[in-house]
Design a protein around this nucleic acid. Structure first.
Lengths: 229, 229
DNA sequence: CCTCAAGGATAGTTCAACTATCTTTTCCGT
DNA sequence: ACGGAAAAGATAGTTGAACTATCCTTGAGG
């Protein structure tokens, strides 16, 4: 198929597809002649994935490009490609420079968090960006005057582990590496909002339970919150 | 204190503080004379919260303004103000228009998700934005050709519930409403990245365990992933 | 009284993510 | 064979968000 049909099939404008091609988010079509290229189902699929990463996943074009570049690079092992793709997914966080006065506190907190998780028997790379995310969040909470929830990590970590195991077994089913990587990216990016939304709904449930009493079954109806639009 | 000192204390430039004042993210100082206003500790505190919402929480200026506007509005009950503040936190999601052809599928999926959670006994408002987030994510997964994890909601939901309960009990300790609201916003926005980071680290652990064998204690070292910088 | 700076208004900047235009070339129908 | 619609590609323009810099009025301190 040509550009126009790719656009129709994917719901993305021709101009935007050209933009994604320029940015390296989707591979070029195979040039069937000097001024004509052919696109296939993989392009449609990739385009949909890109749109999901950008809109639902909230990723930037640059982040999406980096992730997909690694995912497409055959120069790594399966384990590496899956791991690297995951490493490059957002959020990324800015670490204070070594000469920054805040760096000492940063390093101390990061080491503490790392030790806490290692004490749970978790194995992960020392440079895992997740450690930086944890450090930044905890330090920011502290700056706002709240207790560091490092001591609650056990609870959070134990809640996440069975989820990760179930998801991993799902992904392991994909034998073709390209499919496994796409599944990793898709699940990582699209299940995150699901988890967060469920946490918020759980908060609402806990709150409603305390507010309206423990009687079950009935819902709060339209009482507790006016429309926030 | 005056603007210059507020800037020094908070680490935010004078120009940016003026911008936030214009946008209604922080309340104006009390005018001590026609051309001079006085700021206090609450302004420093609010400014730090705003910066956390924008940088760590990834919120837009408009979203932060809406949340804080409700949080500051005394015309609601405690339950309402906490609930509304939470409702207005991101992510927000675009719902297809009623005349959109995709609307029927949207409504059906949303009803299914809602029923699934209600079956767990959860109580929440029918217009909870979390339901829209769930719907959008599940539909996007389906469009990419993946199974809808609606049947896995039970697992996810059961993992989130004890977390939400523990967090809620923490927030309930704040008797002053303003403090409770600030804590709600801070915990909601800043613990989300913590949960997601832990999920990713758990994925890495599961992967490493399968890849390097179940031997415990030793970590993967620098082997599995080169630096993705 | 005079100056320097705070506050406020307004306009300009930067960046990301498109979007539109222009040019060259090619395919397709006649 | 030929003329025009249309594809590729390059380049420039647009939009919106989040600042940032400038200007101007006024007011407090010396």
């Amino acid at each position: 198929m040509h550009l126009a049909e790719l656009s129709r099939r994917s719901g993305v404008s021709v101009a935007s597809i050209k933009f994604y091609l320029r940015e390296g988010l989707i591979p070029p079509g195979v040039p069937v002649s000097a001024r004509k290229s052919e696109y296939d189902e993989l392009h449609v699929r990739r385009l949909r994935l890109v749109r999901a990463m950008l809109t639902v996943g909230g990723m930037s074009v640059g982040q999406a490009r980096d992730v997909l570049a690694v995912a497409d690079d055959p120069a790594f092992t399966r384990h590496e490609r899956l791991g690297i793709a995951q490493y490059m997914l957002p959020p990324r966080v800015t670490v204070p420079e070594p000469e920054d006065e805040a760096r000492a506190a940063w390093d101390a907190m990061r080491a503490q968090i790392r030790a806490e998780l290692r004490a749970l028997g978790w194995r992960f790379h020392d440079e895992a960006p997740g450690l930086d995310v944890l450090t930044r969040s905890v330090l920011t909470l502290q700056e706002l005057g709240y207790d560091a929830p490092v001591d609650q990590f056990r609870r959070y970590a134990e809640a996440m582990r069975p989820i990760a195991e179930a998801e991993y077994s799902t992904i392991e089913k994909y034998e073709v590496l390209e499919e496994a990587i796409e599944a990793t990216v898709a699940y990582t990016v699209l299940i995150e909002p699901i988890l967060l939304a469920l946490r918020r709904l759980a908060h609402e449930d806990v709150s409603a339970r305390l507010y309206y009493g423990a009687g079950s079954g009935s819902d709060p109806g339209s009482d507790p919150s006016p429309d926030p639009g």
